[in-house]
């Protein structure tokens, strides 16, 4: 499995990834998925990434913010009424 950028989250990430790959290949791709069965594991994984400030420490949360703000800027640019 690919590694997490936060080594402390590797274990929970691996559990989630394993769950997701099984769900994706056995249910989702066969058109029999009704819910995302791996969501509880995903929440744990996400908690590790956010609560432990894994993203923050690496300055990534700020970059994500900037990426979002950038998108808004671009959207505003393109949505501008042309002329008149």
């Amino acid at each position: 499995m690919s590694a997490s950028l936060a080594p402390e989250c590797n274990e929970v990430k691996e559990r989630y990834d394993t769950c997701f790959l099984k769900w994706y290949s056995e249910k989702y791709l066969r058109n029999t998925a009704t819910t995302d069965e791996c969501e509880p594991l995903f929440r744990q994984y996400k908690t590790c990434l956010t609560a432990k400030k894994a993203l923050k420490e690496r300055g990534i949360d700020q970059m994500l913010e900037e990426a979002r703000a950038d998108n808004k800027d671009n959207d505003a640019e393109y949505m501008k009424p042309s002329g008149r």
Binding site: S4, K13, N31
Partner: peptide, 19 residues
């Protein structure tokens, strides 16, 4: 050279079956 890959958001819509 890809050091890591993390899923940050994931949502499944049962209605449209889109992920």
């Amino acid at each position: 050279h890809v050091a890591s890959t993390d899923t940050i958001e994931r949502s499944f819509d049962p209605e449209t079956q889109r992920l």
